[in-house]
Design a protein around this nucleic acid. Structure first.
Lengths: 234, 234
DNA sequence: CGTTAACTTGATGCTAGTCAAGTCCTGTGG
DNA sequence: CCACAGGACTTGACTAGCATCAAGTTAACG
C-alpha cells in the first residue's frame, strides 16, 4: 500500500470519474450551507479550500473575456457537481478560483483548507494518491467534454448528457429495482445548453424529439429513461 | 516556504498554463527519444511514468467509442505539448493512459516514474505543490478548450489558437527583438481542425481570410503574426 | 392570483460541414 | 537531375444543422 495504492476506480473503458475523496472522511472538516442561486466561491477569489458536496448540487461557470471588450464575454457552464464530488481543483494552479460555483439547490459542502490538505497528503501516501487521482479524473472529464463539444452533433450530446447524469445520480437517488432511471434535473435548459455548447431551444427540441421517438419520458425537469440502448446508440 | 509555496505563475487574468515542472530538474531522470509519428504511449497502457518534453513536440489524441459500434468512433486532438510541458497527467486517475501521445517531430522526453515521483512529493512540499499546480493547470486548460469549442465561432477559435501558440513558442524560439511573431506550425491543418472542433477545410479557409484581412502572414506552415490586436479582437 | 422565469414550438438565415477539383510541396526512384 | 507519387493544402459549390428571432404555453413563486 505504499507508493501507488490502486485507487478504487473500475477499470472499464468508461471509468467513473468524479472520484470520491473518501480518505478525507476520517477528518472532522467543517461544513457550510449554500442557498440555491448563491455562490460558494467566485472567479478571482483567493483559493482557501477545496469543497466536497455533502448534499445538493452546483454548477461551475467559467468566463472568458470575449475578444472585443464591448462584445459579450464568453461564459459557459463547465461542470455540474453532485454528492461526493469535489470543487475548486481548478484554482490550485494560480491560487485563485478560475470559475464561479453556484448552488442549483440549497446545498451543504465540506470545507477542506488547502493549507491543511497538502501537509496531510505528505503524511499519508494513500491520501496523496487519491487527491492526485481526483485531479486527474477532472482532467479527463474536461477533456471528454471538449471531445463531446468538438465532435458530436446535438442529439448525441444530449443523449450522452442524460446517460452521464443517470449514472451519477442513480447511485444516490435510486431505490426501486434494477434500473431506476427516473431523473429530476436540477438545472435549467439554459444551463444544459451552456454546458453542451447548444442554445436552450436546441436542447428543448432535442429532448422533445427523443421523447417522440420513445427513448425517454419527459415532464418538465422530470426525465425517465425508457430505452437506454437507444440513447447509447445516438 | 512550507505548506503552500506560491508557485511562479503570473497573476494576470490569462495565467500561463502548462506550468513548468522545475523542481524535477534537480533529479537525474532518464530520457527517451521518440521519432516523428511514433507514439510515446497509447491509450489503455498502464501508467508507468509522467513525461516532460525536453525538445520537439507532441499531440495527444483521445478516442471515444462513437455510440453505434459500427459508426466511426469520435477522436480528437485534446492537446499539443511543447518544450517543458508535461504529458501523462490524465492517466493518474485510472492508472492507465487515457489518450495516445504522438510525436509531431523527433522529440526527447524526460521520464519520471510515478513510483518515484509520489514519494518525492511527500518529502518535498514545494515539489508536491508544483505537481498539484501542474495538474490544476491542465484542468483549466482543458476547461478553456471546452469553453472555446462551446462558445466561439471558427474565426475566434483559430485566432485564439494562434495567439496561444505564439505565447507558448515565443518564449523559446524567438531571438529577434520585441515580438518575434514568426511561428512554424509543427502540426497539419487536420490536427488543428481536430483540436478546434473544425474541419481542415474550415481551418484553411479561416487562415486564408485572416491573411487577406492583414492579421497574419501565411506561407504553408509558416505563420507571421502581423496584427496581434486584430487577432485578439476576433 | 398575478407576475415572471422556464419551457416549447415554429419560421428563417447563416455558419460550418461535405463533396469535389485542383495546386503545391516533399521526398523518392528512375 | 528530373519525373513522379503521395500527402498536405487551398478553393469553390452546395447542403445540413443549429442559431436566431418570435410567439405562445406552462410552471414556479411571492
Amino acid at each position: 500500500m505504499e507508493p501507488s495504492t490502486d485507487t478504487a476506480v473500475p477499470a472499464g473503458r468508461a471509468p467513473t470519474l468524479h472520484v470520491r475523496f473518501a480518505d478525507a472522511d476520517a477528518i472532522p472538516f467543517p461544513t457550510r450551507t449554500v442557498e440555491r442561486g448563491d455562490a460558494l466561491y467566485c472567479a478571482g477569489e483567493p483559493l482557501r479550500s477545496l469543497y466536497t458536496v455533502q448534499s445538493g448540487c452546483f454548477k461551475t461557470v467559467a468566463t472568458f473575456p470575449g475578444g472585443d471588450d464591448d462584445s459579450a464575454p464568453h461564459a459557459q457552464v463547465t461542470a455540474f457537481h453532485f454528492k461526493n464530488e469535489t470543487l475548486g481543483l481548478d484554482g490550485v494552479c494560480t491560487n485563485r478560483h478560475e470559475s464561479d460555483a453556484i448552488a442549483l439547490e440549497t446545498s451543504i459542502v465540506r470545507i477542506m483548507p488547502v493549507g491543511i490538505l497538502e501537509p496531510l497528503c505528505r503524511e499519508y501516501a494513500a491520501m496523496q494518491h487519491e487527491l492526485l487521482a481526483i485531479m486527474s479524473a477532472e482532467i479527463v472529464r474536461a477533456s471528454r467534454l471538449a471531445l463531446m463539444l468538438g465532435t458530436m452533433p446535438a442529439r448525441e450530446r444530449v443523449a450522452a448528457f442524460l446517460l452521464d447524469l443517470a449514472e451519477r445520480l442513480d447511485a444516490r437517488v435510486s431505490s426501486s429495482g434494477e434500473h431506476a432511471s427516473e431523473l429530476l434535473l436540477p438545472m435549467t435548459r439554459a444551463d444544459i445548453g451552456s454546458y453542451l455548447g447548444l442554445e436552450l431551444e436546441t436542447v428543448s427540441r432535442t429532448l422533445s424529439k427523443l421523447q417522440r421517438e420513445g427513448a425517454i419520458g419527459l415532464n418538465g425537469r422530470q426525465v425517465r429513461i425508457v430505452d437506454r440502448a437507444m440513447l447509447e446508440r445516438q
